[in-house]
Design a protein around this nucleic acid. Structure first.
Length: 571
DNA sequence: GCCGTTTTCGGCCCGACTGTTTTCAGTCG
């Protein structure tokens, strides 16, 4: 087994033990060990061969033994026992809100419920309200959760899409008879979630290439196909391989990148200009096929500016789009990394390690934002720890000069809209990011009021992950965005674009709307370790989809300008 | 399960919400 599979097995075991009613600390120890392994740079081979597993936090004798067995592909008795006792499909029930190990066990033992489908039917028949640990309200909440999960079935986060798309490109690009390979579809356009990966292959020998791709990817079940595309399932994701020939690769690149509505709009515009467009997006003029030598050439036919894939959507006002399209923000323009967690709270790196990473990668500043005191689950900082952290930052600022570390905090917004520290502590931070982490079940009025109150707090600088959504897991609370945007403008508060792939919050459509109202943004990594820093590019893609330019994004500003923007605040 | 030790075993992250069981179990972040 490789490292990822071992980590999955440890987490699987912890879920089984939760159903089995084991000691909660034992359950947590497997999760902790999996977490540690995930955040360790060394390969699993190295850790085992140099006997270093036990040196890692949370890995003792028993878990070490299990990891070694898993690595060698030998059975782990504890895991085998659980797999024999409970069906594997039972674990999928953990994705439903309000279902934990205890209730899942009751469902299994009383009604033999093993799948989400069976759970849904039992809810609809009103069978679970009377079970021990359940009631009518919980039954309704579970049914609601099941319906949400079903809506997202088959969808994946964009990072998974990228990972799979790149893996496929790397695997097939060397196949003889393939001229070129492109990532197309929603992955190329950077939608936050995807339900398939689209790859376009340029070849003159389609049937031969299909066979070779099947062999290379070890997939044989071609689900359905037409003359241009073949559909497979690869690692649980729907994979479409589209084909083009060298002479029509750019029109097909445009066509398969989409979005569907965007392509339709351009097709219509071409027809209005006197061109003919066939089903495969070949373009003709007076029956003569036009040689299209780049994607840009399609835009030129319409005297339109080239639009990068991220903005090939139907949303924008034409004049706003045209004014901004040449100046869309680029990743290289980001000068400071904002909202990172250190090992003071639930991050895995020291502040110095984070700062060194930023420095080495050419950034000018870092804003450390650990969790505030009421976030006990994430080791939120009490007041003494805040002071200790500030001393450390001051010392590091002397050591690392001219690199600058700002004292930030991700401060919880409490249910009544107040912040999680008294004013005399809030005033010691350079940057206060305010976020909602708990009590998320709110209607639009309550949520808007709570967040408005936090925006109006004189110490607030940035509103963090505004919607509270976790993509494909949790919808987040509804908000009156117009009101929130206006309050931010009034109070000189910026809005975060959180680049974590499960958040991507603020949503790009709202980024566009906020930009139109004149809001300022900060693209943050919300990194909990150094590898998480790679997500910055995701945040930049969301900003580009929202048509942001560097002027709209405060962390493209040099350190002094960045911090001065917030000083305009009236206290 | 792990960890730190008074090296044999107690503590481990915890406050808040929910529904209803008026004292707590289950779940969540």
């Amino acid at each position: 087994m490789d490292k990822a599979e071992i980590i999955r097995a440890l987490r699987e075991l912890s879920l089984y033990l939760e159903i089995d009613g084991e000691n909660p600390f034992k359950i947590r120890s497997y999760l902790k060990a999996a977490d540690t392994l995930e955040h360790t740079q060394e390969s699993i081979e190295e850790l085992i061969n140099t006997n270093k597993l036990r040196e890692l936090e949370g890995i003792g004798e028993a878990i070490e033994k299990k990891i070694i067995s898993l690595y060698k592909g030998e059975p782990v008795p504890a895991l085998e026992k659980m797999r024999n006792k409970y069906p594997e499909s039972l674990l999928s029930l953990f994705s439903i809100p309000f279902l934990g190990g205890k209730r899942i066990k009751v469902l299994f033992e009383h009604l033999n419920i093993k799948t989400i489908e069976e759970l849904k039917n039992a809810c609809l028949e009103g069978k679970i309200a009377n079970l021990p640990g359940f009631n009518k309200k919980i039954e309704n909440k579970i049914l609601k959760g099941v319906e949400l999960i079903s809506k997202w079935e088959g969808f994946h986060l964009i990072d998974k899409g990228y990972e799979i798309a790149n893996e496929i490109v790397n695997k097939i690009v060397g196949i003889s008879n393939i001229d070129e390979v492109y990532i197309v579809g929603s992955v190329r356009r950077f939608t936050e979630t995807i339900n398939n990966v689209d790859i376009m292959v340029v070849t003159q020998d389609k049937s031969e290439v299909i066979k070779k791709i099947e062999k290379e990817l070890d997939i044989t079940t071609s689900q359905k196909s037409d003359s241009n595309s073949v559909e497979f399932i690869y690692k649980n994701i729907k994979l479409n391989i589209h084909f083009s020939e060298p002479h029509n690769k750019y029109t097909k690149l445009f066509y398969y990148t989409g979005s569907k509505d965007f392509v339709e709009k351009y097709k219509f515009a071409l027809k209005r200009k006197g061109f003919e467009v066939d089903k495969e997006f070949n373009i003709f003029h007076h029956k003569n096929r036009i040689e299209v030598l780049s994607e840009n050439a399609i835009f030129e036919l319409l005297n339109e500016p080239y639009l990068p894939p991220e903005v090939r959507e139907i949303l924008y006002e034409e004049d706003i789009l045209k004014k901004r399209i040449d100046r869309l923000i680029k990743e290289g323009e980001i000068k400071g990394i904002v909202h990172c967690h250190s090992n003071y709270s639930d991050g895995h790196n020291t502040i110095e390690e984070l700062a060194e990473y930023c420095k080495d990668n050419g950034y000018e500043y870092l804003v450390v934002c650990d969790h505030s005191q009421s976030a006990g689950y994430a080791k939120g900082l009490n007041i003494d720890t805040v002071r200790k952290q500030h001393d450390e930052i001051e010392n590091l600022n002397i050591k690392l000069k001219p690199f600058k570390i700002f004292k930030g905090i991700e401060c919880d917004i409490r249910l009544d809209g107040t912040l999680d520290y008294p004013n005399d502590i809030l005033t010691t931070f350079d940057i206060v990011v305010v976020s909602v982490h708990s009590k998320l079940e709110m209607d639009e009025n309550i949520a808007t009021q709570r967040i408005t109150c936090a925006i109006n707090n004189p110490f607030t600088h940035i509103l963090g992950h505004p919607s509270g959504r976790l993509l494909l897991t949790r919808a987040g609370y509804p908000l009156n965005y117009e009101k929130i945007f206006d309050e931010c403008l009034k109070n000189n508060v910026a809005i975060e674009i959180n680049a974590q792939p499960q958040r991507l919050d603020l949503d790009w459509k709202n980024v566009y709307k906020g930009m139109c109202r004149g809001l300022k943004f900060v693209i943050t990594t919300d990194a909990h370790d150094i590898p998480d820093m790679r997500y910055l590019s995701y945040g930049v893609s969301i900003a580009r989809k929202g048509l942001l330019t560097p002027e709209d994004v405060l962390n493209t500003y040099p350190a002094e300008e960045f911090i001065n923007w917030f000083k305009k605040k009236k206290r």
